[in-house]
Design a protein around this nucleic acid. Structure first.
Lengths: 336, 336
DNA sequence: AATTCACGGGCAATCGATTACACCGACGTC
DNA sequence: GACGTCGGTGTAATCGATTGCCCGTGAATT
């Protein structure tokens, strides 16, 4: 039951612990016969380094912390899965925290991760301004990359998609489908992606002459319920636009559902689009046109950036990597 | 930038490190004025214990490892969220691993967690027999509780729901809705819940006189695609049963979707049930009748068991906690 | 008054690995 | 033949906290 330590291996191989360490972790050269003898001894005894002891000595834990607003949201789930996958390839572990969409909880979790000496932190901050202090002070102590969303007032690495470009693709697509007007169902502008998607929508709709309006801009939160409710508000308020551009898939799923129950046909009477391409968009009635987020690439990029930053803190300028997302056309919009 | 150590605090407060440790962690008594001085010094310097150093000394990490077959599956996502929540209350962190539904990966992750000295492991094994060796040897070294599923040939703590009882409720419910026959759309019997749900279905259908049959028992995997495909097979094979009892919600979602596209009305022509009560069952057309898994309570119970086991390993008999799940009736079945 | 005893506190070992430094023999150079 | 040099190895310090053991003090007990 007692763990095998490096001293046991040393004794068994008839060398010092220093040699064992060097033979196994390869710090400096060791003659090949001794190295072989050590490896042999280690194998026989079933030795494995104790990561705790190593971490204490070298202050590196091979562990990355990740904080997401809510793992319940399938988009973040996909992100977590991708990050876990990317880390696994590097032999690193993932310490996962859920911020419960609350900046205070988020701050606590970030501090806990710093205290735990993780090698780096991947965070999708839940709030654009309230999350700033915690993210800021965390980034001063550790390599940190923000994912998808980012907070104002700091400059750390960031990886996400180009929300503005994505929204242009969406608006042009529904215009091509014949929409002359569009409503925006979004989330309150408390974080960067909410803001950018909203801004991108308005800007491009304006540019290509799709009618919008304040009464057609409804901001709530990222949830199915809000999507349903927003359609209710819209329907009760008089004139209906030709398209509903939603800030994420949950809202869009709610919107589509509300349309069905009210007898508003999708996409014939009204086109609907989502954002994120979560798995269940395929299952909606009708399947949702949406914007695919390349979570795999986002995660890979984030892990790569963390690795780079491991060298020196803030040794280089912050990198902002904006991937270009793809529009996924399904049946909730008209084509041709 | 340098971290504050216990020695700094000791110097600042004019006492020894031993006293600081005792004053803060309260191992032994310290006079109240000294304690106050130490706390004051710690506060001023912004001292926080180094969990790595402590872990090395006391071999306890305040970290729990969790391994799930696939975090992509919303049921496991919910479980992870609940566990994270329950641990947070205890000031413990969660080391999350995804086994990618592969026993070999699962084994690797379990070993990694053991090596990392987590205090305990929560695992939902992906395979009923292939996962046994890894779970077995892990349980010999650490407190371990299995969640939802369990492997054969070991006896560790387990928390889940009573699948058999759940299936009785399901079968009786569709019978009450008028079904005289039912097909079972499940997953290959490679793990305990697959087996138990299948067995429960057959047993109770038989008992209450609902017709079943080998041609109406289709086993694939837990996925939407399989649900769709299975309905295709069923439809092509001649006679359709009055109900489709599915082993999980993903299958049921696929089934409902396939029924729609084939013009088989749900629930009028055929009733459909799911299992797990994942969030998207509400969104299906029609919303799915399913079995609710009390993930919160499952997680709480699991964390509690881990805590108990922390004392001595195998100091007591393995506990098997089977919670009784609730049937959630929606519109994919007939009532009355 | 002598002996215990409880209490509060310090010294130093300890957890298990890494690594700076010292050492030693062999080899090459002048 | 004396003197670097270099590759390989060992010794011991180190990371930061916890804790077994010991000591001195003052109160309680006999």
């Amino acid at each position: 039951m007692q763990r095998v330590t490096i001293a046991d291996v040393a004794r068994h191989a008839g060398v010092s612990t220093a040699t064992v360490s060097r033979a196994l972790s390869g710090g400096r050269k060791v003659s090949s016969d001794v190295a072989e003898r050590v490896r042999e001894a280690a194998r026989e005894l079933g030795y494995e380094v104790n990561p705790i002891a190593r971490a204490l000595r070298v202050s590196r834990t091979d562990t990355v912390g990740m904080v997401v607003p809510s793992i319940r949201n399938p988009f973040f789930t996909a992100l977590v899965e991708s990050v876990e996958h990317a880390l696994g390839a590097d032999g690193k572990e993932l310490l996962l925290c859920d911020a419960q969409s609350d900046p205070a909880t988020e701050a606590k979790r970030l501090d806990a991760l710093v205290t735990r000496n993780v090698d780096g932190i991947i965070v999708s901050p839940c709030h654009g301004t309230d999350s700033t202090p915690a993210v800021q002070r965390t980034a001063e102590r550790l390599p940190l990359v923000q994912l998808d969303r980012f907070v104002g007032g700091t400059s750390t690495d960031w990886v996400g998609v180009d929300d503005i470009a994505a929204m242009r693709a969406v608006v042009e697509h529904v215009r091509d489908g014949g929409a002359r007007s569009a409503a925006y169902l979004g989330a309150r502008l408390t974080n960067s992606s909410s803001e950018l998607r909203h801004a991108g929508f308005l800007r491009h709709a304006d540019e290509i002459g799709v009618e919008t309006g304040p009464q057609w801009t409804l901001l709530g939160d990222y949830s199915v319920e809000w999507g349903e409710r927003a359609v209710g508000l819209l329907a009760d308020s008089g004139r209906l636009p030709d398209a509903l551009v939603c800030a994420d898939d949950l809202i869009a799923l709610g919107a589509v559902r509300a349309c069905r129950t009210r007898g508003i046909t999708v996409p014939d009477r009204i086109q609907v689009t989502g954002f994120d391409n979560i798995e269940f968009t395929r299952l909606a009635e009708p399947p949702l046109t949406t914007v695919d987020q390349p979570t795999r690439r986002i995660a890979d990029e984030a892990v790569r950036l963390l690795g780079d930053a491991a060298g020196g803190p803030a040794a280089r300028d912050a990198a902002h990597v904006a991937l270009v997302p793809k529009l996924v056309v399904r049946d909730s919009t008209r084509t041709g």
